[in-house]
């Protein structure tokens, strides 16, 4: 998986959580799309997004790196560059 592929996967999942009608691109900030209040407990879009990206990394042969603490306030490009 390269950087472009990881960003495409991230944008695919963000589109599927995007009930706000925001534009999804490399500059989309996660906190504009994801939320901790759209589910019960940790069954929410922020938590699920993080889990599915980590699953994708592992299943496609990459190291499951620690996510930066500020990822939620950063965009797709920033997060992809930190966890690949």
């Amino acid at each position: 998986m390269n950087l472009v592929q990881l960003k495409e996967v991230m944008k695919y999942h963000l589109r599927n959580f995007n009930d706000e009608g925001e534009v999804i691109n490399d500059q989309t900030v996660h906190n504009k799309i994801l939320s901790t209040t759209d589910g019960f407990g940790n069954a929410n879009s922020k938590y699920v997004y993080r889990a599915v990206i980590r699953w994708t990394m592992k299943k496609n042969g990459h190291q499951d790196k620690v996510w930066p603490a500020d990822w939620f306030d950063k965009d797709v490009s920033y997060l992809a560059s930190k966890i690949l």
Binding site: M1, V4, Q5, L6, E8, V9, Y12, H13, R15, N16, F17, V48, V52, W55, T56, K59, N60
Partner: peptide, 13 residues
């Protein structure tokens, strides 16, 4: 997605 296996989040989960 772009040749990468990933969970289908536009499917029922």
């Amino acid at each position: 997605i772009d040749n990468q296996l990933t969970p289908c989040t536009d499917c029922f989960m």
